[in-house]
Amino acid sequence: MGETQGHGHQEGNGHAQGSKYGMVIDLDKCTGCGACMVACMAENNVPTKPDETNKLDTITWMRVFKLSNGKAFPEAETCYLPRPCMHCGGKHDAGHSPCVSVCPATATDYSYKTGIVSQIYTRCFGCRYCMGACPYKARYFNWWDPKFPADMKEYLSPDVSVRMRGIVEKCSFCFHRYQRAMDRAFYEGRELEEHEYQTACTQACPAGAITFGDLNNERHMVHKVVNDKHEGHAVLQGRKPFRLLEELDTNPKVYYLSARDWVVKAGNASLRETSPADKKPSGGHH
């Protein structure tokens, strides 16, 4: 934690660090309703299949995992863990994300201005190396031509291009919303406000479990939560934000909160107490 930098901070790698958009997801608030998944699919023109039971080839930029503590009633507990793309910054936020560093055709890139990992659909030729590189399995391949039920075509967002068969796609932190908000802010000659750029999943969550903003901006809630400067907001309530697989040096921008010890431990293998085979929480796809 506490790796955030101020505006204009010059990184060791020579890249000026601007904004660093990230997310804090309160797992104790998440009910697993799946509204974030639905909102994400609608917002980003994610195609559907007639049969989506096979989750191994279904595109879900935002996926809710179901975690269980593996205990019998009455100690059985469940936790729902929404997993968008983590927009990893790599070591020292140098942009050495697992996926960006391996893409052979520069089809995915790390923005030092926003900290967002982009995907250039027309550049990707579908080698799927990035999918192999991502430990969060946040990248999805278009195994089929994109298809939408006839009526749904009218609802497609004009701000997001529909992806063609044979390429990889993933969560963009609703980058088109950033562009739209930035355009307006630029036109009006002012800085972007926190509420102007929010992802679809953040806004759709009925429990308010997702907080989104600039991790580098002291006025943004995510910055306060991550740096424990919530100033009376009582967001943390003694909980410490954690990230998934932190020990791999992927440096993700999605933080999680939970008061439950076993949930925190599920985030990182290194936090396990004993043999992994005994203590591993069972997981599933929602």
Binding site: V102, T106, F125, C127, R128, I167
Partner: peptide, 26 residues
């Protein structure tokens, strides 16, 4: 055969990311 967009196969040369091992392979 393996790449999803075979007609874009030449991108690996044209838009080469010299830091990728796959580029070196190609």
């Amino acid at each position: 055969i393996d790449i999803g967009q075979p007609l874009r196969g030449w991108f690996i040369f044209w838009h080469a990311n010299v830091h990728s091992m796959l580029t070196e392979v190609a």
